[in-house]
Amino acid sequence: MQLRERLRDYALPTLTFVLMLGLWEGIVVVFNMPRFVLPAPTAVWASFLRWQSAIWGHALQTLYTTLVGFGIAVAVGLLLGWLVGYSAVLYKALYPLLVAFNSVPKVAIVPVLVIWFGIGTVPAVLTAFLISFFPIVVNVATGLATLEPELRDVLRSLGAGRFQVFYKVGLPRTMPYFFASMKVAVTLAFVGSVIAETVASNRGVGYLMIAASSRFDVPLVFAGLLVIGAMGVVLYVGFAFLEGRLTSWAYRK
């Protein structure tokens, strides 16, 4: 049983990944795709090995801006989410603004950020933050706003004030919502960083891909994509693990 579950959890995703690579390789070979249109996985891998040291540096830069931006998004998202979920007045006041803000394509904001902060790390961090804080706010606010009135009455009948109700019930109750949103937000943060790097940076995987595509080095572009994908998966798994440990009660395990 244990072994079977392990097999399902690890072998299945690996299998689909390998199958996808095989299909990709097959298509390239069968249709004889030119390298600058669609490079084969083997070519991408070769390119990755060749540029390995350069890719590492850029990847670390992207990881750094993503995590810093994501960290700010978590702090701001939790705070705003709690505020908006806690107070109906603030909800009414802030929600339309937040939705409007989230509807703005973040690519459009990057040039403005460049005017304010110059090119490089700061716009990437800020874009990562801007793109990833919204799901956190919405989820945390929902978690608080859907608090069962019965649970609130339990605490109120003991004479608990609003803050105590929040601290004892609201806060723990939002945790599953918070972790669910973190998994979405961390992958979005990558999107933000890479967008900013492609537009305005001379470091990072985004920059690497733009530079490579301008030289028609498509295998390197794909290598960059794969690196981002891999980093995204690793962080997602990390947060899924944390979620399982910290909010196991919500999954009743």
Binding site: E150, D153, V154, S157, L158, G159, R173, M175, W249, A250
Partner: peptide, 15 residues
């Protein structure tokens, strides 16, 4: 605080 109350649902905190 002189009052203790129990409800129709147990309303225990799941965490």
């Amino acid at each position: 605080k002189v009052v203790g109350m129990a409800f129709q649902n147990p309303t225990l905190l799941p965490w």
